[in-house]
Design a protein around this nucleic acid. Structure first.
Lengths: 339, 339
DNA sequence: CTGAAAGCGCTTACAG
DNA sequence: CTGAAAGCGCTTACAG
């Protein structure tokens, strides 16, 4: 592999001048510039990244700390982020955060050791690990959830408003008893969805019925079975996320409760085949790819500006969700468009 | 950040001895070892990765070149790979390969520039770019498809046998006219699935009907509509992948052909909600996570051995697929298990 | 079993 | 506008 010295020799200049041309750090006479570029091309010179980083520069990499790539929502986000980073000449270093706190801390340290230029993170970490992040001197963008205790930009989704919209829609269908089902209530997103639900119910003077610790399929079946046996049960469900929605679909079929005749259903977050179910699923859709793009944009603006948010505060971006009415809410799916 | 020199000073030894303890390169007396470890702990010393790489060592990173993280199949593979790498103390550098050839070449060069310790790649690249990969002196594992022209280990799925199983099953249901629908026939996996289909048809003296350029939803609707109008049409479909299956489900509903009464359907690769459709979808399921695990294992064995496959050949691993019989093939779904 | 010194390839004050 | 020299933090023959 050729080095700056090789290029300098061939071009008949000093190594420093080569560095200046490569990094565009200061003016170099047109003549030398041309000779250097030619030498670079001829030799196939590529700057050694390790050497640059050793000198204190940041690597041309961003770090992405995300719960689970096998979750389609996060997969879409990650794909968008990777693509954006790539367009800026950066690679993406990925770390899953769905592991033990001990492992997570270790991995964050490793990432710091790679001298990434910036970090996009879905904060699912306990506060201890977070502190480490805030100590890094690189820009951080939190996404899907805010990163408490750190100076970071943030892009989230309209969780509260989305939930309100869904629940109001069920109320307009005439439902009085609407259950809210899910888990992970301490999570920012879920917390806000519950808030939206509660708010919409209260506004119509209906009593909230929250089941916020229904995590496994078994839990879900148990809950639904209890409903089936009793005459006195909710006639509609607002599901707090993807996984809960899937479990509910299973459970409702298992105990033979028809959607939307016996119970109407609206889920937060779309499912891949949601439109092909019978009835097709009504959902609040999150703009996964756009979430990734916006987070990337914020991050690269900070990287370009080479500084943390001013005044100690970051930008907060709240992206709108989309209400996709199909059949499971009780509306007749007159014509099914492409999902 | 403390350096080896700091640790050496505190422990009262030479820097080289610190290095030996950190990297476990050769024996160090128990006494010094203890003092060094203590100093490391006290100082919170972390080896500077950039410096190690600059000295010619490989980074504690593997590269993953994969078509699309937003595709659930690849997302699951990536998640498994990232987890395995992490368990070995390695981070994962991800590059999407669903871009122009020019960009891809650029990204491969960048990855090489990071001195990754190994590479897991889904070869969707034109041969030109492949050559670059084979020139790298790190172990490579090709997955999902072989990497022609490079010395690499390889883990793929039983495409041919899986397709045969599916098609034979349709034949046992009494179907004489079974269409094979999809696109990307030049791809290894799809090519082999078509081979399996053709083989099974021939073995039963049935005439293959292959539609291997049906890529978009529009194409699919057009094809299915033609069938609907004609009396003379296939009574069963073998779908070559995920996307085609989704398009077929849409199209069949659109033109009002009932599954499995009008046409039976079996798809290669499962869909997330496949079991919840009406009728539930019969599929050949690929072991996505295991594919990732096996590929990782092979890679880390090579990394540990620090050499390319011997004799110029790599290991080839063919993983079995699973035939998941649900309803769309025409079988009665007596009891639906958890998908 | 242990250590001093050189060097990986780059960038950066400093001097001209 | 340009360059020589030092140094980032590590590892590695080499010598003892």
């Amino acid at each position: 592999m050729p080095t700056v010295a090789d290029v300098a020799r061939l071009a008949g200049v000093g190594a420093i001048t080569v560095s200046r041309v490569v990094n565009n750090t200061s003016y170099v006479s047109a003549d030398k510039q041309k000779r250097i570029r030619e030498a670079i091309r001829k030799l196939g010179y590529r700057p050694n990244q390790a050497a640059r980083v050793l000198k204190g520069n940041r690597a041309k990499m961003i770090g992405l700390i995300i719960p689970d790539l096998a979750d389609l929502f996060f997969g879409k986000c990650a794909a968008a982020i990777e693509e954006y980073a790539s367009s800026q000449g950066y690679m993406t270093l990925i770390v899953s955060s769905n592991r033990s706190e001990e492992l997570q801390k270790n991995e964050i340290v490793m990432m710091m050791g790679q001298n990434v230029a910036g970090l996009i993170v879905v904060p699912s970490l306990p506060s201890e690990s977070l502190r480490q992040l805030s100590e890094m001197e690189v820009p951080i963008v939190a996404f899907d959830r805010p990163l408490e205790g750190a100076i970071a930009d943030e892009v989230v989704v309209e969780n509260l408003g989305g939930a309100q919209t869904a629940v109001k829609h069920l109320i307009e269908h005439g439902h009085k008893r609407i259950a809210c089902v899910g888990y992970d209530k301490t999570t920012y997103a879920i917390g806000h969805r519950i808030l939206g639900y509660t708010d919409a119910m209260r506004a119509s003077r209906l009593k909230p019925e929250i089941y916020d610790e229904v995590e496994t399929l078994e839990d879900t079946v148990k809950l639904v079975r209890r409903w089936k046996k009793s005459q006195d049960r909710p006639t509609a469900i607002f599901s707090l996320n993807n996984v809960s929605t899937r479990h509910l679909l299973w459970a409702l079929r298992e105990v033979d409760l028809a959607i939307p005749q016996d119970v109407a259903l609206i889920g937060f977050d779309d499912l891949e085949l949601g439109a092909l179910l019978s009835p097709p699923l009504t959902v609040i859709r999150q703009p996964a790819a756009n979430l990734g793009v916006q987070a990337s944009k914020l991050l690269f603006e900070r990287i370009a500006a080479a500084k943390r948010p001013e005044g100690g505060f970051g930008i907060k971006l709240v992206l709108p969700v989309e209400f996709v009415i199909r059949g499971s809410c009780g509306c007749h799916a007159i014509k099914q468009g492409k999902s």
